[in-house]
């Protein structure tokens, strides 16, 4: 879309210039509404069952807040870097988008590796696996569901970086990047609730 570069007051939001783009963005917000209900239901189950430890370990016994703090910092920063990617998109800076998205992916990989290590640690150090108690089941299903969403996001954004190089920033790729960034922020929003409700409240008891 070369005419988008013509004037200084260029179309900033490429992602909304086509009907397909507008549809994708609205559709994605509706999907996020569904995701709110999905995670919310998992949270409700967790709140209901978190005290049922079946004579085994509780959150206060095993949660490692330092690891969680580092994971939070990684994810929060990755959310910020995805914002920077969108800023670059509004400046039509294709290379900038790719760089910021790549950093986002790296931070996310760091988050995921730490989480996998954390789970491994709980299983091997405390025998805390999914069959242990209702608490352990809701913990792994809720936090694991979030982790799966992170993994999907990593694959998705990586593919988008590839597409950016192959096709450039167009009215077709712009909505995809915008929507992926919305997804990424949402993942961070869910994490805010996870570290608050699961880990911090779990530590308090």
């Amino acid at each position: 879309m070369s005419h988008a570069h013509a004037e200084g007051n260029a179309i900033e939001s490429l992602e909304r210039t086509t009907l397909e783009g507008k549809n994708k963005i609205l559709g994605f917000w509706v999907f996020l509404g569904a995701e709110v209900v999905i995670f919310g239901t998992l949270f409700a189950a967790h709140i209901g069952l978190r005290n049922e430890v079946n004579f085994s370990v509780s959150g206060a016994d095993i949660f490692s807040l330092p690891i969680v703090a580092i994971m939070t910092a990684l994810l929060l920063t990755s959310s910020m870097t995805s914002v920077m990617a969108i800023q670059a998109m509004h400046r039509h800076d294709t290379k900038g988008i790719a760089v910021w998205l790549a950093i986002t992916v790296l931070l996310a990989l760091g988050f995921l590796c730490l989480e996998i290590y954390e789970f491994y640690h709980y299983v091997h150090e405390y025998g805390f696996n999914i069959q242990e108690s209702p608490f352990s089941t809701t913990f792994y299903v809720l936090v694991g569901c979030h982790g799966v969403h992170v993994a999907v996001g990593i694959i998705w954004i990586s593919l988008l970086i590839g597409q950016l190089f192959k096709k450039g920033l167009t009215v077709v790729t712009a909505p995809k990047i915008y929507v992926a960034s919305l997804y990424w922020h949402f993942i961070d929003v869910v994490w805010v609730f996870i570290f608050t409700v699961v880990y911090l409240m779990g530590k308090v008891g």
Binding site: A45, Q131, S133, P134, S136, T138
Partner: peptide
């Protein structure tokens, strides 16, 4: 163990 009363 979501719905298993024997474990809570």
């Amino acid at each position: 163990n979501f719905f298993d009363p024997s474990t809570g």
